[in-house]
Amino acid sequence: MGGIPGLANFSTKEDLLNRVFEETESTVNTEGIRPQPQYQVEEGVLELPEFYNDVRTLADVTDVDYFMPGCPPQSERLVEVFTAIVSGAELPPKGSVIGAGDKAQCDECIREKSEDKKITKFYRPWEVIDDGKTCFMEQGILCMGPTTRTGCEYRCIKGNAACRGCYGPTPDVTDSGAKMMSAIASIIDEKEPSAIDMVLEDLVDPAGFFYRYSLPTAYIRRTMS
């Protein structure tokens, strides 16, 4: 999916290199030196891999046998997968997602969820004292539970942090952001467009949240300039 480094698609190669090698406040580089794929030193030519403009997914650049989600994959899942491989059990078809569930986090979440709870405001995580047991979305704290696969054993939730989606979207989801907008629409307790706008105003950096681990797979995929 591109993972966290996929967030680099929010900028261009030029902007990124400029920030790292010239703008950063502790860097002194008046000559505008940049690392070069080939550089002639007195003794010979030194080579570095080229830095690309685009972060692509693993499957975009190489043939993938199996996809094992998680950043990082949980150790229980690794044990299950390795055990399955060494036991000689029949493996799923090539290209399958292994070591994760097909359900959404919300389907089996350990936090309490009411039937039809609606909200009128989104909060940043530090703006509220989380009660440690109620659904984050019902407390107005953004959570990737509606779109994210199970398999992590709810470690972030148990650590009192809402899900950031590192296990990737469930099989029925083609775009995490679209799915999240639909989940958000169903929990907002406002009818008037202006009131809905007010609620959404508190939703900061939705793209950076919805595509935290998957920007190179998203419909928007990257910035153009």
Partner: peptide, 18 residues
Amino acid sequence: IPELRGFEKFCEGRPVEE
């Protein structure tokens, strides 16, 4: 060192508590 990711750039725009 043959690699770079660029956290300095792509952390821009995120809420700082993230």
